[in-house]
Design a protein around this nucleic acid. Structure first.
Lengths: 124, 124
DNA sequence: TCCATATGTCGAGACTAATCGACATATTGG
DNA sequence: CCAATATGTCGATTAGTCTCGACATATGGA
């Protein structure tokens, strides 16, 4: 991922309404939500929301698809992967010793089901 | 990590000079660099740089320590972990099936060799 | 075709961020 | 204490962002 694209993504997420939109679309993966419903859900005027959605779209964090009269927005999952990778690469560039525990930290959220179930059982 | 703190971090990194500073400090871990040297390295007036460093500091991405006449800035590694974790948790919240390959993607950068892991464990 | 629905675009006002000269503060050595 | 060095703060200017009313465009049904 290039710096320029990363900056667009950081700027897009550095705004409360847009961060909320992104999280909302993550929750609604993989179906997505129409623009109007997003606006209603977050109590923002439709034209204001349209601007925010355009910024998220230019940043590559969401994608839009027309479906009859509605336009369905979806979170772009590999954009999250790219942005996270950008951070991790910066972090690990020459410093792999601090990166391993970083990845280990994600395991509870990302681990394959078997391990996740075992970890959960331990805490119970 | 709270949304408010994440927004501060995203905003801090959404500016070319500040992103450069952050990457520069990552390269110079764990020694850090004095403010003046950072400004000289990136060809930015010292007072402008001072403002940028303050913003990075408020965002929790760097820390400062006075050392004689100079003030040494260092990247805060666990801030990267927190911010990355914020993204990944958002991504994996209810969607662990898309998260496993995401973590696998990091392996090449993180070199999960036993020696590296043990060394990291010692420091923690 | 005409209307209702869904969304996008434009433009103005208010607000916030970025930059840098000038000045202020902190530290050290003489 | 004074001068030199290193950094931070203030204030003004410029540039960019956020918001939303008004208008424009696209789609589907009567």
């Amino acid at each position: 991922m290039e710096s320029e694209q990363a900056i667009l993504a950081f700027a897009a997420l550095a705004q409360p309404t847009r961060l909320d939109v992104f999280r909302l679309l993550m929750e609604h993966e993989p179906d997505g939500l129409p623009a109007g419903e997003i606006a209603r859900h977050l109590a923002v005027p439709h034209n204001t929301m349209s601007t925010h959605l355009a910024i998220l779209s230019r940043a590559g964090l969401v994608e839009a698809e027309r479906q009859s009269r509605s336009i369905i927005y979806r979170a772009k999952l590999h954009a999250v992967r790219d942005l996270t990778g950008f951070l991790v690469k910066d972090c690990c560039g020459g410093h792999p010793e601090i990166c391993a525990p970083l990845v280990a930290e994600f395991s509870p959220y990302c681990a394959p089901k078997k391990i996740a179930v075992r970890e959960a059982a331990k805490h119970e």
